[in-house]
Amino acid sequence: MDTFEPQIVAFCCKYCAYAAADLAGSMRLSYPPNVKVVQLPCTGRVDIFHLLKAIEDGADGVYVAGCLEGECHFLKGNLRARKKVEYVKRTLEELGIEPARVEMYNLSSAMGPRFAEIAREMTGRIKELGPSPVKDAAIA
């Protein structure tokens, strides 16, 4: 368990979280390499299907990072994304899988340090939860 390095997928809005990731890079801030970033035009594009597919394919954790509430470039994309994340949390709970493996975060493009902090926070959380039971079974 000590050597467990989780696979985490981060769906990031290009107007905020993805730009914040760029900023984190420019600021030479390090964050865990466990996080694989997928750029979206808006978190409103993310679908329940994408989040479940990541879990089914063996991701140990998945998160969506969108603009601060009230500041979505497309007005409500981040609020819709939050509802989809909540749906997936309920689905995982129904299946006996920790809902904390999926999360919604909000940040602005100026928050490079916060992006790195979120990546560390999520990696720490998933390391504590351990490997996804879906992944374990798939490997077995």
């Binding site: 679908d47 329940i48 299907f49 479940l52 597919k53 879990i55 089914e56 689905t91 299946l95 006996g96 899988i97 039971p133 879906v134 079974a137 798939a138 077995a140």
Partner: peptide
């Protein structure tokens, strides 16, 4: 279509977890 896809994924996740894909 979307609900079919979501149900299929949910069932696949559950069965993978059980170790019976």
């Amino acid at each position: 279509l979307k609900e079919v896809q979501i149900l299929a994924l949910s069932l696949k996740i559950a069965r993978k977890k059980e170790g019976r894909p």
